[in-house]
Design a binder for these strands. Structure first.
Length: 1028
RNA sequence: GGGCGCAUAGCUCAGUUGGCUAGAGCAAUUGGUUUACACCCAGUAGGUCGCUGGUUCGAGUCCAGCUGCGCCCACCA
């Protein structure tokens, strides 16, 4: 923005569907208020439970949104606050409906019965990326299934299947054998009688089945050192096939047209009610009946017990394996067979478009040669390695399950409509006629699914919602939960009730000669569906707004690597799809993550994070911002050791840590420091502690932010001093001829600091351009503190009040520093800017070559510009020499323990041009070294008892500070150093290959260094000789 | 199991196409306060750059292997 670009930082929040609904539900339960369960009951009773619950969640969301917004504001984030948006506000909702409608119309959204990742606690489907794998210690169970013929007559043989999930055997519909598995292939075509259930199921051939290792095989592998395939080692050769409860088995079931028997209720308890044809197997089967209603864990124990009791459990082996868990409720995922909505992201119009968007130099050719393209992609990742994450994800992507069985979210804009036509007319025609009657015919897409008897009606129009709502008002039970076989009896029942129906039904009847019912899909969309539309929806899409034209596409997205797949990918696909191939943004900057002091990811639910308000409280917003800018680098995550602040005394201390579940180190819920009690943020987040008056919540802090705080303090004090020296400016500032083009007008220190400033602006610009924010912070820090404060201000502090030139240079540096620092530290720089403005007129700030446009507010000021042609290498070289001499003299003073305030006489031997330089600049060297010059020239005598300070061709003698013996010892040590240095350089130069292969300038540099080292060596030798 | 990354001073991290006599902040340590700043100033000490090989005139930097961590992905027999 300071550089004059058209910029926008739009703040916003998403509704985080599952997380939010779960948290609110839990909180309501804790508070003893009606929670989700109660509201669901109300809904069944025909009351508006859904609406009431959503109102509760909305209230919670409003509260936390305000917290987040306030955090951002306190941090000084310079957002367009009047544009703040929320993924469920009206404008986003409009975009969501339109996007869904278009995708539905184009056949890229479909409803399918599939195995999904089911969370039995929140009772919702999860996307693949919402499943976390955890290593679990479990068992491999080897269960014997009796082999039989098609009629169920046992042959006396057994097929032993191996499984980690015995309870799913209730839903087995086949046993599979690999046809290449010689010893077992003979069973193919036979049957087994499934124990407990007594279902007769076939033994089929499928080469997915792992052939077990024979003992001989195992021995051979071991002998030859080839690793043993773990699966083959554990396999039994017979695979139980449970299509409703295992993704692989589902695939096998599809290949062999096997029945799909779901044996569980949505809460993962064993149940007949969800697709298990039970008529035959329950007859007199008390063993099976005993299992009904058990949780899957209980059922597993019961099934194992049964098999053991009936002598059908061949073996149980311990086995450690990865099991998918819900990222929200943390229970194991149940592969579950239900209807869900999908976006066909595997379509080339989505996946292909995303892959083709990638910058050519970041895209790798696929192994199979697919997605080959000549398109010049513009999507570029920083750091570039994340391009690979993006590419691999798309190459392996599967269709995206977007329905969630929640109430908190965008409701799916599809109605299920069933029309009972007494005279057998086509129901779709009747529906179209009805919609045409009310002028909404073109607002819908109607689809007739193969597997259901009702229509799917997708609409983006709320009017259609109303119109369809009329059709279904009298029907209470959600259609989607009606099983196919129930539908017919439902119809009859409704027809029987017909005479008693309300006027709504009359309305429907009057439009067409039919009886109808409808229900909007009760599910909501995955939160990422609306997040994926963010670059569009926030700009007013689908309308053609000026914002959309101005800020889509935009330049950069800054985000975390963990959501490259969840968010970045989907924004790219959707934006390209809905906006004629336009990318939402060109650059994706993936920033490092701040971890806690133990290298663990910070997490709100874990309570090991740090509230920015705590850091603002302890260090200030600017200190926090500066430090974060400084420590966040490209390559590595940053560990941030977190301290605790005692609320009783304000003292900082290291809290006591405990290991929480999952092996995570967290601050103990209750802490004691100097006998006083307090509660940690983990204690509150986990519900293990509650703050009281005696034991209040302790804030967190971290020493890490001291650096920023010290820097802010340094800025403040430097300005205090500088402004005191810029009072009552008189005379006229120089406007031309003072730039480096005519540098003679300025003294060496002035030219040097302006050179440093020019370099700094260049370094800052390139750092920011390449998203190297840490380098930006470091560059300004070094300029302001190390160059300006440590050297320039120290040099001019005695003279600046009387020197208009120094005042102008100082004011220029101060002005430019504030501009450069404003993005990192907006508060203090703005305050100092006001002080600078009130005291130093614009004419005194800036010089020829430095463009510093006046501005009342720093936040509106322009970025500083320095002409790189103004770099002054002569000044840099000369100043470096003087600075080195000063440093060496200081070292010598320390080495000889000369009291800091004691003045020392000094004579200097140097070649004529340097002698002249030193003489001219003695106003720099003398005050900074505490020396009084007693002569400088090519030939000076060595004073008695003097220490010799050697810098290149310069020798400074400090008078009367040492006895000859001590000095000789020091010089002898120095001599050894120099000899070593010469030897190293000698070695390099005598290496013929180095001289011939290394770049010429490097060889020359080595020669120069060699010559200098020899000269210095000789000088030291001479010094020692002079001492006698 | 696949992929990506990390291991540099006591701590937290830089080190940009190989040229380094390896840096910063903090911590440690010596000395310093008549007015910009002790949240400061001037110094000092501290590293065989995880290990083993290789490429090269030259390796913290490139390659291979090993060890130890972290993250992401993966069809839980």
């Amino acid at each position: 923005r300071m550089r004059g670009f058209n910029t926008l930082w739009m703040p916003g929040t998403d509704h985080a569907g599952i997380a939010t609904q779960t948290v609110v539900d839990k909180r309501l339960q804790q508070e003893g208020k009606p929670a989700l369960k109660e509201y669901k009951q109300q809904e069944l009773e025909g009351k508006d439970g859904r609406g009431q619950f959503i109102a509760r969640v909305t209230a919670w969301k409003d509260e936390y949104e305000e917290t987040i917004t306030n955090q951002l504001k306190e941090m000084g984030c310079s957002c367009d606050w009047d544009r703040q948006r929320f993924t469920m506000d009206d404008q986003c909702a409009k975009a969501v409906r339109e996007a869904f409608f278009q995708l539905f119309k184009d056949g890229l959204i479909y409803r399918g019965k599939r195995l999904v990742n089911w969370d039995p606690v929140s009772q919702t489907a999860l996307a693949d990326d919402e499943v976390e794998m955890q290593e679990i210690d479990g068992n491999f169970y080897y269960m014997k299934y009796p082999v039989c013929d098609a009629q169920g007559n046992l042959t006396g043989e057994f097929a032993t299947v191996a499984t980690t999930r015995p309870e799913t055997m209730l839903g087995d519909t086949a046993v599979a054998v690999n046809p290449s598995d010689a010893p077992r292939a003979k069973y193919i075509g036979q049957f087994v009688r499934l124990p407990i259930v007594n279902r007769v199921i076939p033994i089929i051939a499928d080469d997915y089945v792992v052939i077990p290792l024979t003992d001989a095989d195992a021995e051979r592998s071991e002998a030859s050192g080839t690793p043993i395939d773990n699966k083959a080692k554990m396999a039994s050769g017979f695979l139980k096939v449970t299509p409703a409860h295992d993704p692989n088995d589902y695939e096998i079931g599809q290949r062999h047209n096997l029945a799909i028997i779901n044996v569980m209720a949505p809460d993962a308890s064993i149940s007949f009610a969800y697709g298990w044809p039970v008529e035959k197997c329950t007859e007199n089967n008390t063993d099976l009946e005993a299992l009904i209603g058990l949780s899957r864990e209980e059922a597993r124990k019961a099934v194992v017990k049964w098999f053991k009791a009936n002598d059908l459990m061949a073996e149980v082996k311990p086995y450690r394996h990865a099991v998918g868990h819900s990222y929200r409720s943390h229970v194991p995922i149940e592969p579950y067979y239900t209807d869900q909505w999908y976006v066909k992201v595997t379509d080339d119009k989505l996946r292909g478009a995303a892959l083709r968007a990638m910058a050519n130099n970041q895209r790798e050719q696929s192994d199979d040669g697919s997605f080959k393209t000549d398109e010049q992609g513009e999507l570029s990742f920083t750091p570039s390695r994340y391009a690979k994450t993006f590419q691999t994800w798309h190459e392996n992507i599967r269709d995206w399950c977007i329905s969630r069985q929640l109430w908190w979210g965008h409701r799916i804009p599809v109605w299920f409509v069933a029309i009972l036509s007494p005279n057998g007319r086509d129901s779709e025609l009747i529906l179209r006629k009805y919609l045409a009657e009310v002028g909404l015919e073109d607002q819908v897409v109607i689809r007739k699914p193969e597997t259901h008897s009702f229509l799917e009606v997708c609409t983006h129009s709320q009017e259609v919602d109303l119109a369809l709502g009329y059709l279904g008002t009298f029907r209470q039970k959600p259609l989607v939960s009606v099983r196919e076989e129930e539908l017919e009896s439902d119809r009859n029942q409704i027809l029987k009730q017909a005479p008693k129906l309300s006027s709504v039904e009359e309305t429907a009847k009057s439009i067409g000669e039919f009886l109808s019912f409808s229900e909007q899909d009760p599910d909501v969309l995955d939160t990422w569906f609306s997040s994926a539309l963010w670059p569009l929806s926030t700009m007013g899409w689908p309308d053609n707004t000026p914002e959309l034209a101005k800020w889509n596409p935009t330049s950069v997205l800054c985000t975390a690597r963990e959501i490259i797949t969840l968010w970045v990918s989907r924004m790219v696909m959707f934006n390209r799809y809905f906006k004629h191939g336009d990318l939402p943004f060109k650059d994706v900057f993936i920033h490092a993550m701040i971890q806690d002091g133990h290298g663990q990811k910070m997490s709100k639910s874990l309570g090991n994070g740090v509230d920015p308000m705590d850091i603002i409280h302890s260090h200030g917003a600017d200190a926090m911002r500066y430090t974060l800018t400084k420590i966040t680098t490209q390559t590595q995550d940053v560990r941030l050791p977190v301290d605790m602040v005692d609320p009783h005394t304000g003292e900082t201390f290291t809290p006591e840590y405990i290991t929480a579940s999952g092996g995570v180190k967290v601050a103990a819920p209750e802490q004691t420091y100097k006998g006083k009690k307090m509660v940690s943020s983990y204690g509150v987040a986990s519900g293990k502690a509650r703050p009281t008056d005696d034991a209040p919540l302790a804030r967190n802090s971290s020493e890490k932010f001291d650096e920023g705080q010290r820097f802010a303090n340094k800025l403040w004090n430097a300005f205090r001093f500088a402004l005191a020296n810029l009072e009552n400016l008189s005379g006229s500032p120089r406007r031309d001829g003072v730039g480096f083009a005519d540098a003679k007008g300025l003294a060496l220190a002035d030219r040097w600091i302006l050179n440093q400033l020019t370099k700094t602006i260049g370094a800052v610009d390139s750092a920011l351009r390449e998203y190297r924010f840490s380098d930006y912070a470091t560059a300004v820090y070094d300029f302001f503190w190390r160059d300006l404060c440590d050297w320039y201000i120290e040099i001019v502090k005695r003279t600046v009040k009387e020197s208009p030139a120094q005042q102008q240079v100082l004011a220029t540096c101060l002005d430019a520093s504030l501009r450069l620092l404003h993005p990192a530290m907006p508060f203090i720089t703005e305050r100092l800017w006001q002080a600078l403005n009130s005291q130093v007129p614009a004419a005194w700030r800036g010089l020829a070559g430095f463009e510093l446009k006046p501005s009342e507010m720093l936040i509106r000021a322009a970025w500083p510009k320095a002409d790189s042609a103004l770099l002054d290498t002569d000044a840099e070289r000369d100043f470096e020499l003087i600075r080195t001499i000063i440093i060496k003299i200081r070292e010598a003073r320390t080495a000889y323990k000369i009291p800091p305030r004691q003045e020392v006489q000094a004579t200097t031997q140097a070649p004529a041009p340097i002698a002249s330089l030193l003489l001219t600049n003695r106003n720099i060297t003398q005050p900074l070294t505490g020396c009084i010059g007693r002569g400088v020239g090519p030939h000076v005598d060595r004073p008695a008892n003097s220490a010799a300070v050697l810098v290149g061709e310069v020798t400074v003698y400090l008078h009367d500070v040492v006895d000859a013996q001590t000095e000789k010892a020091r010089l002898t040590k120095l001599l050894a150093d120099k000899e070593k240095q010469v030897k190293t350089l000698d070695g390099r130069l005598s290496n013929a290959k180095y001289v011939s292969s290394a770049p010429a300038h490097l060889v020359q540099e080595t020669r120069d260094q060699h010559a200098a080292a020899i000269r210095e060596l000789e000088q030291v030798q001479q010094q020692i000789a002079e001492l006698g």
